[in-house]
Design a protein around this nucleic acid. Structure first.
Lengths: 161, 161
DNA sequence: TCCAACTATCTTGATGTCGAGATATCTCTA
DNA sequence: TAGAGATATCTCGACATCAAGATAGTTGGA
């Protein structure tokens, strides 16, 4: 069962026979899969009326549990964006009525961002749709294979944690 | 061996006990790994004086083999960007002297983009650096595990080919 | 041969992100 | 308790990308 990455690796092997191309088989597939996953995410979210970046922020608040509030600093660390980006994102989410911003009573430099009921509803719907889309991706793998894959990815991810 | 995704899944399980979260174990790790991989790529390329988007274009030309030329249309299909983006990328690569643009003798609408010797040198250096960085990621996996991982990813990728 | 539909590329305007810097506040130590 | 350094957030300008539309050239059927 050949795929597009086999073609890509073959082309490199022809052009650069001096190199060991073993990493390509893993990382090219990983990159491509990630891109397809992003597209599928976007599609699932569009049907729910939100964008991927909105989900990333709302989901972090939702996961935090009631009362669904975190600081911008915490949010940017959870979502791996810069502070300027998070300011902008919170602005737009507040305009949409999905979050509210108010001063942190414990730190006058700080701000807390809280999910509104509308935001909670939006993120819950989006997460359900996302899981459904992701499950469709996994149907070609047995439960055992899914577990093996998760374990292998965990090993690769370990150095970064 | 717990990782950050276990924490994330646990938080979701606490908040949404009604959902089957199996896909999270695979896809959250995949997304995170992809992000770390992008950062590592950027770093490897920076040391070689080029940017990831430059590599994507130059590598497609390099893989094509001598005389290292492709149309913008072919390049945008290989790199999955829009035509406006490719116009801009080729402009900047031409300014840097890594590619040349000239009219397609067979189709007067068309253009061919060709790698210059400087571009070839740059992409060859960058690819070597990239493989080295990627190999470092894989040291925690046995050759057998690397093969298993590639096979599982190939299965997930198959529906898109 | 003519024309409609298609293809290839480029242009333009909007958008989201980043990085650097500004401001306000807090914390720790001398 | 004063001050230096750390921290939290926001502002602003630069930049890469995308989507839609413009332009030029090609192709196939009537």
């Amino acid at each position: 069962m050949r795929d597009e990455v086999d073609d890509l690796a073959e082309a490199w092997a022809r052009e650069r026979p001096d190199l060991d191309l073993a990493p390509v088989a893993v990382f090219s597939r990983l990159s491509r899969l990630s891109r397809h996953l992003d597209l599928a995410r976007r599609e699932a979210f569009t049907a729910q009326g939100i964008e991927p970046w909105e989900f990333d922020v709302l989901a972090a608040l939702r996961r935090a549990g009631a009362p669904y509030e975190l600081s911008p600093g915490r949010l940017l660390r959870e979502t791996l964006v810069t502070s300027g980006t998070m300011t902008n994102r919170v602005d737009r989410l507040a305009t949409r009525g999905f979050v509210e911003r108010y001063p942190d009573p414990e730190d006058r430099r700080g701000v807390l961002v809280r999910l509104t009921p509308e935001g909670k509803e939006a993120v819950d719907g989006a997460f359900t749709a996302l899981l459904e889309a992701e499950r469709a991706f996994l149907t070609d793998l047995t439960a055992r294979q899914q577990g093996d894959l998760a374990d292998l990815l965990r090993k690769l991810l370990a150095p970064f944690s």
